[in-house]
Design a protein around this nucleic acid. Structure first.
Lengths: 250, 250
DNA sequence: CATTGTGAAGCGTTTCACAGCC
DNA sequence: GGCTGTGAAACGCTTCACAATG
């Protein structure tokens, strides 16, 4: 239970794939902790996360040896360690650029603040939107971006503008000193090295689903031609390795 | 320019990683087509997409041999082929479950319809929300889900409920006959085999950025200790292989 | 002769299988 | 005895490098 290694500075590098799963484990472990579960096995966590148990163990092993052989992992302690590793031991205020539909929804969506990412500001270039209030935050003009970022020491920016102005929004964020950007606009952003950019494109997600739907259609048509016998639909083609989970439904 | 292979049924399997990039190429190519560009090289497309040219060529090679050696790819024809491969040669109406903040934003966000995914319906369990209108679509009660899905022949559902009811929403969607689900709730959904589920978790994205921010902080602190000489910040640590792009900013 | 299409090498991730340990 | 931690094998994706070719 004692911390086994140098705290905070000098940290081993964690594979990106693992970094992307840690938040999911964290979510589940927090729920378990709330439900009064004190200890969990890699098998148990794997089941809840919809992944393989070996993967859970390998992922957790990058944090250090925090499990107990023959027993499992102490939930509270794992929560603490994952939070620390992800840098969630303090809040990260974010600034949203773009107060249109999406920007408003993001500001209004309470989930961010709860999860440690309070909306420190929202800006728009359109003066008509300035001074309206969304999600309890007053919209300010984009020219105030610098002031907001500096005064609140913000390092994460969210681009929620139309595609045509997204690059400009990103450039402004970078100039203001932001070093991580979450981009919701359907464009590929350029940013200097040292700035991390992640993209969430809702239409892309739907298009990936479309691909799978379409394949299913092709397949079914082929099966009909083969005139297979009745019964439960077989459905081959693994749904997808990473994001998709298949599992018996409750 | 002539189609070189059996159309529509019997299709080669495309790697998931490629499927995830095709929508990005499609987006770029559509813009190029609109701008009057007739032909593009793998190098050119790679630059615009922020990826390696060899990757572009390999990705496109899964669609067939649609390029011309020494010349490049015909933009219009590529657009056509990618759209076909992704199943975007017809619309896919979607149904949104949950008319809260996020559901409303998604329904109001015109981008879906434009990109071939019109909102065929939005439902909520809360009778207070029923009959309100969001994004031009009237909210209906969740008990009408079956009727909506069947009447509009919907195969893609979007879960935009609070986490506690997300699994129920998914179960209802599956029972109604939906076979692809895009999940915005921060929970791992279970679904029977044959149903594709993709998850978009905004907080997870921010937590991944948090990890990188935090690392940067550690590093900077370490550098300060080493008391390096002044000049342009070096910043090691590759930002991330998949989602993140680094590039000289305009 | 510029550019595609692709074997083959390289690399990161997943999974297996079992030694190590409580 | 049960479960973790981890080498090593397997796998899929990326990148290289170059032969094929319009």
């Amino acid at each position: 239970m004692a911390p086994h290694r140098t705290p905070h500075v000098t940290r081993r590098r964690i594979p990106e794939a693992t970094v992307a799963r840690l938040p999911v484990y964290l979510q589940i472990l927090s729920e378990q902790a709330e439900a009064g579960v004190a200890s969990i096995s890699s098998e148990g966590l794997a089941e809840l996360a919809g992944v393989n148990a070996a993967k859970v163990r390998k992922d957790l092993s990058y944090l250090g040896s925090y499990g107990t052989r023959g027993v499992g992992y102490e939930v509270d302690y794992l929560v603490y360690q994952i939070r620390r590793e992800l840098g969630l031991d303090h809040d990260w205020p974010v600034v949203i650029v773009g107060a249109g539909n999406l920007g408003q929804a993001l500001a209004g969506y309470g989930g961010f603040g709860e999860r440690g990412f309070p909306v420190g500001g929202i800006v728009d270039i359109d003066v008509a939107k300035v001074d309206t209030v969304v999600g309890g935050v007053r919209v300010r003009h984009i020219d105030e971006l610098d002031a907001i970022v500096r005064s609140k020491d913000i390092s994460i920016g969210i681009v929620a503008t139309p595609p045509s102005t997204a690059q400009d929004a990103a450039d402004r964020l970078v100039r203001s000193g932001v070093s991580s950007i979450l981009n919701f606009a359907p464009v590929v952003l350029s940013a200097p090295a040292g700035v991390t950019v992640r993209k969430v494109d809702l239409a892309v997600e739907l298009q990936i689903l479309s691909y799978h739907e379409q394949r299913r259609g092709d397949q079914r048509r082929t099966e009909q031609l083969r005139a297979a016998s009745g019964g439960v639909t077989p459905i081959a083609g693994n749904p997808s390795p990473a994001e998709s989970r298949r599992d018996a439904t409750a």
